[in-house]
Amino acid sequence: TTVEVQGVEYRFDNPEEAEKFAKKMAKSLNLRVELHGNKWRVE
């Protein structure tokens, strides 16, 4: 599972970890998070 934060990609073996990371990043950067296939995008 991939998390893309403002163009930078982070890879996770565990989808739940990816989701937690994406939501945490979105909250700290005041952005929103969307799931596209198996990629979380924070923008």
Rank of each mutant, 00 (worst) to 15 (best):
T1F: 15
T1L: 11
T1H: 14
T1A: 12
T1M: 13
T1W: 15
T1G: 07
T1V: 11
T1P: 11
T1E: 05
T1S: 10
T2E: 07
T2Q: 08
T2K: 07
T2A: 08
T2R: 08
T2V: 14
T2G: 05
T2I: 15
T2F: 14
T2L: 14
V3H: 00
V3G: 00
V3I: 02
V3Y: 01
V3E: 00
V3P: 00
V3T: 01
V3M: 01
E4Y: 12
E4W: 13
E4P: 00
E4I: 14
E4T: 11
E4M: 11
E4V: 14
E4Q: 10
E4L: 13
E4R: 07
E4S: 13
E4D: 12
E4H: 10
E4G: 04
E4K: 05
V5A: 04
V5K: 01
V5S: 03
V5I: 11
V5D: 01
V5Y: 08
V5H: 06
V5N: 02
V5G: 01
V5T: 02
Q6Y: 13
Q6K: 09
Q6L: 15
Q6F: 15
Q6G: 10
Q6V: 10
Q6A: 10
Q6M: 14
Q6P: 01
Q6W: 12
Q6I: 10
Q6E: 11
G7P: 00
G7M: 04
G7A: 03
G7W: 03
G7R: 03
G7L: 03
G7Y: 03
G7I: 02
G7H: 05
G7K: 04
G7E: 03
G7D: 04
V8D: 04
V8M: 10
V8Y: 09
V8I: 11
V8S: 05
V8L: 09
V8N: 06
V8E: 07
V8A: 06
V8C: 15
E9P: 06
E9T: 12
E9W: 05
E9N: 07
E9R: 08
E9H: 08
E9S: 09
E9G: 04
Y10G: 00
Y10E: 01
Y10R: 03
Y10C: 14
Y10V: 05
Y10P: 00
Y10F: 11
Y10T: 04
Y10L: 04
R11A: 10
R11M: 12
R11L: 13
R11Q: 12
R11P: 06
R11V: 13
R11I: 13
R11H: 13
R11S: 10
R11N: 10
F12P: 00
F12K: 01
F12R: 00
F12M: 02
F12A: 00
F12Q: 01
F12C: 14
F12V: 01
F12W: 02
F12S: 00
D13G: 09
D13M: 08
D13T: 11
D13Y: 08
D13H: 09
D13C: 15
D13I: 09
D13R: 08
D13K: 09
N14K: 08
N14M: 07
N14Y: 09
N14A: 08
N14S: 12
N14R: 09
N14P: 01
N14E: 09
N14Q: 09
N14H: 09
P15Y: 08
P15N: 07
P15L: 06
P15R: 07
P15T: 06
P15E: 07
P15H: 06
E16Q: 11
E16S: 10
E16L: 12
E16D: 13
E16W: 11
E16N: 09
E17T: 08
E17R: 05
E17V: 07
E17P: 02
E17K: 06
E17C: 15
E17D: 12
E17W: 05
E17Q: 08
E17I: 07
E17F: 05
A18H: 00
A18C: 09
A18Y: 01
A18L: 01
A18E: 00
A18P: 00
E19L: 09
E19F: 09
E19V: 05
E19H: 06
E19K: 07
E19C: 15
E19N: 03
E19R: 07
K20E: 13
K20T: 10
K20R: 13
K20P: 01
K20S: 12
K20A: 12
K20Q: 13
K20L: 13
K20H: 11
F21M: 02
F21E: 01
F21I: 02
F21P: 00
F21A: 02
F21W: 07
F21H: 02
F21R: 00
F21V: 02
F21T: 01
A22M: 02
A22E: 01
A22D: 01
A22C: 06
A22Y: 01
A22H: 00
A22F: 02
K23G: 04
K23M: 12
K23R: 14
K23L: 11
K23N: 08
K23Y: 13
K23D: 05
K23H: 13
K23I: 11
K23F: 10
K23Q: 09
K23T: 07
K23E: 06
K24C: 15
K24H: 14
K24P: 00
K24Q: 13
K24F: 14
K24L: 12
K24I: 11
K24T: 12
K24V: 09
K24A: 14
M25N: 03
M25I: 11
M25C: 15
M25Q: 05
M25E: 03
M25K: 04
M25P: 00
M25D: 00
M25L: 11
A26W: 01
A26P: 01
A26H: 01
A26Y: 01
A26V: 02
A26F: 02
A26N: 02
A26G: 12
K27L: 12
K27H: 11
K27N: 10
K27D: 11
K27T: 10
K27E: 13
K27W: 06
K27S: 11
K27V: 10
S28N: 11
S28M: 14
S28G: 06
S28Y: 13
S28L: 15
S28I: 14
S28C: 15
S28K: 14
S28W: 12
S28P: 02
L29Y: 04
L29R: 04
L29W: 03
L29K: 05
L29T: 03
L29C: 15
L29E: 04
L29G: 05
L29M: 07
L29N: 04
L29F: 05
L29S: 03
L29A: 04
N30D: 08
N30V: 04
N30E: 06
N30G: 14
N30R: 07
N30I: 03
N30C: 15
L31Q: 05
L31T: 07
L31Y: 06
L31E: 04
L31R: 04
L31W: 05
L31S: 07
L31G: 14
L31K: 05
R32F: 09
R32S: 12
R32E: 09
R32M: 12
R32A: 11
R32N: 12
R32L: 11
R32P: 11
V33Q: 02
V33Y: 13
V33D: 02
V33K: 02
V33H: 04
E34N: 09
E34R: 11
E34Y: 13
E34F: 12
E34W: 10
E34A: 10
E34V: 14
E34Q: 11
E34H: 13
L35H: 11
L35E: 04
L35P: 03
L35A: 07
L35Y: 14
L35I: 07
L35S: 05
L35M: 09
H36G: 04
H36Y: 08
H36C: 15
H36M: 10
H36I: 14
H36R: 10
H36W: 06
H36K: 10
H36T: 10
H36E: 10
G37C: 15
G37E: 10
G37D: 13
G37P: 02
G37A: 04
G37M: 05
N38V: 04
N38C: 15
N38I: 04
N38K: 06
N38M: 05
N38P: 08
N38E: 08
N38G: 13
N38Y: 04
N38F: 04
N38R: 05
N38A: 06
N38S: 07
N38L: 05
N38D: 12
K39S: 09
K39E: 06
K39A: 08
K39C: 15
K39M: 08
K39Y: 07
K39F: 05
K39P: 00
K39V: 14
K39I: 13
K39N: 10
K39W: 05
K39R: 14
W40G: 03
W40N: 03
W40H: 03
W40K: 03
W40R: 03
W40L: 08
W40F: 06
W40Y: 08
W40S: 04
W40Q: 04
W40E: 03
W40T: 03
R41E: 12
R41V: 15
R41P: 03
R41G: 05
R41C: 15
R41T: 14
R41D: 04
V42K: 01
V42F: 06
V42D: 05
V42M: 05
V42I: 07
V42G: 03
V42R: 00
V42Y: 02
E43M: 14
E43T: 14
E43R: 09
E43V: 15
E43Q: 10
E43P: 06
E43L: 14
E43A: 14
